[in-house]
């Protein structure tokens, strides 16, 4: 590659210079990336910091990252002003139930679609994929009237109706079954006289554990952060999810920044901790959405 390969000393010099330049570039890239990453999380960090500040400190410039005199006053005020705990409870119940339903339906349906191939199954799968393209917002109004007809408005059950199944989850599990579970394994179990339900529960499910883990995290955060659907389904203060509660709370006239930040922090901190622990599951689940094609 190098023209001056004949002169070992010069080559070594050049190589060293090259290496130095390279590590300098790498250092620069690290600095840029870390700086950018800090900017990305800065709004969230400032929000959490604001939650612990007194009204006077909130106005300070530049904004302090770590409150000088941290106070819990904002949290106390928010908890007495709003049924925040109730909202969090609603969100939690809704998210857990939705996750369980999505895991159950995806696991069994994904398995059947993968291992019992036939024309009908192909058609079912195609229809599911086609509906997956349609955004929830497109059909949420008729769905609202279905929920109303059942008398489930303003309840967690009404919320749940919208998030019982997830086309992507079925797709994900189907792919996983195809990739990780050989037909021979199922045949062997059948020859041993195992029943189909037993095979699904004792052979298939354990092998899908990591895929279901990734899907579970995705499903939980999907319903934890959903907005438009609870916005129309819940209209009483007691039935709000935390997202709706916060969004409407912030339009009140007596609300100040400290309290808003405190309420937001109560919602943000657990989900960020959750994320830090389950980062791998997350990345796996989301990354697999990109491998559709």
């Amino acid at each position: 590659m190098d023209k001056d390969a004949a002169a070992p000393l010069a080559t070594r010099e050049a190589a060293r210079a090259h290496k130095a330049r390279r590590s300098a570039t790498d250092l620069l890239i690290d600095v840029v990336l870390v700086a950018f990453s800090c900017v990305m999380v800065l709004p969230l960090i400032l929000l959490v910091a604001n939650a612990f500040k007194s009204p006077a400190e909130l106005l300070a410039w530049p904004p302090t990252l770590i409150p000088i005199q941290p106070t819990l006053e904002n949290f106390r005020a928010v908890l007495s002003d709003t049924p925040l705990m109730r909202w969090i409870f609603n969100s939690l119940v809704f998210s857990v139930l939705s996750t369980l339903s999505i895991l159950a339906t995806s696991a069994i349906t994904g398995y059947i679609l993968a291992k019992f191939p036939s024309k009908i199954m192909t058609v079912i799968f195609a229809v599911m994929l086609a509906t997956a393209i349609v955004p929830f917002e497109v059909y949420m109004i008729p769905l609202y009237f279905q929920v109303q007809g059942l008398g489930l408005l303003n309840s967690v059950w009404g919320l749940l109706v919208g998030y019982l199944v997830m086309s992507f989850g079925i797709f994900l599990i189907r792919q996983n079954v195809i990739q990780t579970i050989p037909d021979e394994l199922l045949e062997a179990a059948r020859i041993d006289g195992a029943g189909e339900w037993w095979i699904f529960l004792k052979v298939v499910l354990p092998l899908l554990r990591s895929a279901l883990g990734a899907l579970g995290v995705l499903a939980f955060f999907q319903s934890w952060t959903v907005f438009a659907w609870p916005m129309i389904v819940t209209t009483t203060r007691e039935s709000y999810t935390v997202e709706i509660g916060l969004a409407l709370f912030q339009t009140g006239y007596t609300v100040d920044l400290g309290r808003l930040s405190a309420a937001s922090a109560v919602v943000l901190i657990p989900s960020i901790i959750f994320f830090v622990f389950l980062r791998r599951n997350f990345v796996k689940g989301i990354a697999s959405t990109g491998l559709k094609d």
Partner: peptide, 26 residues
């Protein structure tokens, strides 16, 4: 810094919309 960068850039995608929007509103 890899894990930090990846997490920091990814976190805004998963946090609740409303609290995040409030941070920006401020």
């Amino acid at each position: 810094f890899g894990p930090f960068n990846e997490s920091a850039i990814f976190v805004p995608h998963i946090v609740s919309l409303v609290p995040a929007a409030m941070a920006w509103k401020w």
